[in-house]
């Protein structure tokens, strides 16, 4: 199995608070990897380190090595903007650009990169919206504001926006935490479909969700990685006592 992301001894801080204390793991291509753990265990910080979004918070600091497709993304020659362009990210709450239409929201990433050809844009928008399973719901109102959609639709719009620039990795930071159960289900189905083409890393506080959709699961606690294995193993025969306590609901 090809390893797309290789993380080696990554430490991260917010000011003087250390949120990651030496994380090492490898993430497989075209698989869904879930990061679980209680609040404050560093799972969001970790995923934000993967596309260099962690450092945009004032006072934040990262140490260690992360290789993506064999490129060290923290090497001094690498521009964080280029890293972020190649890696899609979906946030906890849907964040479509409020002043843009549905169409422009999806096209925004392409336009940033200088794609102005109407035909190319139109095709890319349709393709991305189809992949995000939103096309049928919005095809007749592409000129409406992105804010006119429901929360679940907004989140799928954000997924479409991330997909439009054709990344090969998709990071999802608790993408369903602000959604109702039905919208959550749609997102989960979507993740299943998307893994054919993308490597997906998803942070979730919902263990059932991790069990349902992921191939691999990493359990984080207090900034450390406690256990990392095939999802089935984590949930059926965890090796570490703390993992077992967590998945059986004894803390967190």
């Amino acid at each position: 199995m090809e390893k797309v992301i290789q993380v080696n001894d990554v430490k991260a801080w917010y000011g003087s608070l250390q949120t990651l204390k030496g994380i090492s793991l490898e993430i497989s291509k075209n698989r869904v990897t879930a990061i679980i753990g209680p609040s404050g265990c560093g799972k969001s910080t970790f995923i934000r380190c993967l596309n260099r979004m962690h450092e945009v918070v004032p006072g934040a600091k990262v140490e260690g090595k992360i290789l993506i497709n064999k490129t060290d993304i923290y090497s001094t020659q690498v521009d964080p903007v280029e890293i972020r362009r190649r890696i899609g990210m979906v946030f906890q709450k849907p964040n479509p650009f409020p002043t843009m239409t549905i169409y422009n929201n999806v096209a925004s990433g392409l336009k940033l990169n200088g794609v102005n050809n109407k035909k190319v844009l139109g095709e890319a928008v349709e393709k991305s919206l189809r992949r995000a399973a939103l096309w049928d719901e919005v095809k007749d109102r592409l000129n409406h504001s992105g804010m006119s959609l429901s929360g679940g639709q907004q989140q799928r719009l954000c997924i479409a926006r991330a997909l439009a620039v054709e990344p090969d990795i998709l990071l999802m930071d608790e993408p369903a935490s602000a959604l109702d159960p039905i919208s959550t289900l749609r997102i989960e189905e979507l993740v299943q479909e998307l893994k054919q083409q993308y490597t997906i890393v998803i942070v979730t506080h919902n263990m059932q969700q991790a069990a349902r959709i992921s191939d691999y699961t990493a359990f984080f606690l207090n900034g450390e990685i406690i256990e990392y294995d095939i999802t089935e193993n984590i949930f059926t025969k965890p090796k570490d006592k703390r993992t077992e306590d967590y998945i059986t609901g004894r803390f967190g």
């Binding site: 890696i87 906890q92 964040n95 650009f97 925004s108 926006r161 620039v165 990071l171």
Partner: peptide, 28 residues
């Protein structure tokens, strides 16, 4: 909202593009 900025940033926007597409339309 930080989320607005990060949305643009995660798409690979430069700092100026974040300002142009996320910050200014919001703050106009």
């Amino acid at each position: 909202p930080t989320l607005q900025r990060e949305g643009a940033m995660a798409l690979g926007a430069t700092r100026w593009e974040v300002i142009k597409y996320a910050t200014l339309p919001f703050a106009k």
